[in-house]
Nucleic acid binder design. Structure first.
Lengths: 132, 132
DNA sequence: CCTTTTGTTATATAATAAATATAACAAAAG
DNA sequence: CTTTTGTTATATTTATTATATAACAAAAGG
């Protein structure tokens, strides 16, 4: 395990943006308990170096995560995990995801039960990661 | 209702790409039964005009939907709804969506049960749209 | 106190992606 | 036979993404 920084791996072949890859990995690591509220994230320069990307790209990811309510980015203090909950914004976002997921599954003939099962499976793995 | 074309509305203020907005709306309309397998979609020129966008942007959406297995785009015949299912590709895609959904919910303190309920709600609306 | 690291801001540039604008042509439709 | 259509091609514009430097003041660490 990384002694200081978080484990962020950039797939240069992916069609997903670098800053989006970072964003998604951070969200997953918070959910998995690998990043806990209050914990400081590496400096943008550190993350940039360890991930092999530019400082501003790392910064962009942090600022997006702040906008979406996963990090606090204080003046002169850097980024720390601090999840906030905005009822209307966050529930709308989640519902949007659910609607698209449901639509995709519907089109592809994947049953509602199967999606429920996949959700349980994902949740189980998530909860299981807390204990290292 | 539109006598011929499908109802595609482009939100020029959205941060979502035009062709992604089209893609998502088409997927939802297939899931909702407003577009049925075999049905022809409007020509790229028609869609472009009714949606107030360029022909190539409409075309890009159709080609993406083809790549993702929602449309058939035959030579000289245009686009028709034809959903295909590729086990590994599609299930991976769905699982990826589920994992991110689950992670977001986990971070935001939204319970697994709540997500299950939202899923049921989305599915119910989807199934309910079939009967006009 | 001094050096280093840090967050931040600014600017510049390159590369890629998104969207539009025309044009042309052959096939299909009417 | 005219129109519409899918398709291909080219070109341009704008926006986004990613990188490259530089500078500065605050914070940290010695």
């Amino acid at each position: 395990m990384a002694k200081d920084g978080i484990d962020i791996i950039i797939d240069t072949e992916s069609e997903e943006n670098y800053y989006m890859q970072i964003r998604n990995q951070v969200i997953r690591q918070i959910a998995y308990g690998k990043l806990v509220p209050g914990q400081s994230l590496p400096s943008v320069r550190q993350l940039a170096e360890s991930a092999g990307i530019n400082m501003h790209t790392a910064r962009k990811a942090y600022l997006l995560l702040k906008k979406e309510g996963y990090l606090r980015v204080d003046n002169r203090k850097g980024a720390t995990v601090d999840v906030s909950f905005n009822e209307s914004v966050d529930m709308d976002d989640l519902m949007n995801d659910v609607i698209m997921l449901c639509a995709k599954a519907g089109c592809k003939g994947v049953s509602l039960e199967k999606i429920h099962m996949m959700l349980d499976e994902a949740y189980k793995k998530q909860a299981g990661e807390g204990a290292d």
